[in-house]
């Protein structure tokens, strides 16, 4: 296992959804937000963009929740793999995931979950903002630490 996971930084995301496009076109040859395993949301009032992604949890609640043994972990990448033949579309994994990552396939009775593109995620390769990174799990706190550091720097001398 590479031990690498996806890391999303909302502060960098501008909401272009190029990641969604590349996710669906590389997997299905089509462009469709519903077929993308990454979902970008925008809050208009706060003017913030955010990404809903699979985090490759070490003890994955989705695998745990599946009663049909449809979900397994890819031993080389750590991604959660969906066995389309076993999955019945019961949506238990969707409810179990604390991050809202699994999705129902828009036309088939099964879920879709990020497969890390076999170890070179297309969303990471094409994000123009480097808002999504693919990092060793022990390095994942670094972007957050930088973000906190930068916000403190910018906040110095500013009134709350």
């Amino acid at each position: 296992m590479t031990g690498k996971v996806l890391v999303f930084e909302p502060e960098r995301c501008v909401g272009c959804r190029i990641c969604e496009q590349w996710c669906s076109i590389t997997h299905y040859g089509e462009i469709s937000p519903s077929l993308s395993c990454i979902t970008i949301t925008r809050d208009h009032a706060l003017q913030r963009d955010n990404g809903i992604i699979c985090r490759q949890c070490p003890d994955a609640p989705c695998i745990e929740s599946c009663k049909f043994d449809a979900l397994t972990r890819d031993q080389s990448t750590g991604a959660i793999l969906v066995d389309a033949d076993k999955c019945v579309g019961c949506r238990m994994c969707i409810r179990a995931c604390p991050h809202g990552a699994p999705k129902m396939h828009p036309t088939e009775k099964r879920v879709i979950i990020c497969d890390l593109c076999g170890g070179s995620p297309a969303c990471v390769a094409h994000c123009p903002e480097q808002a999504i990174q693919y990092l060793e799990i022990h390095k994942t706190e670094r972007p957050y630490r930088s973000a906190v550091h930068n916000s403190q720097k910018g906040g110095a001398g500013r009134e709350d």
Partner: peptide
Amino acid sequence: GTGSIKVHDPEALM
């Protein structure tokens, strides 16, 4: 919309 846009040549378009 939950549909998709199908393109003629996905590889070349990418």
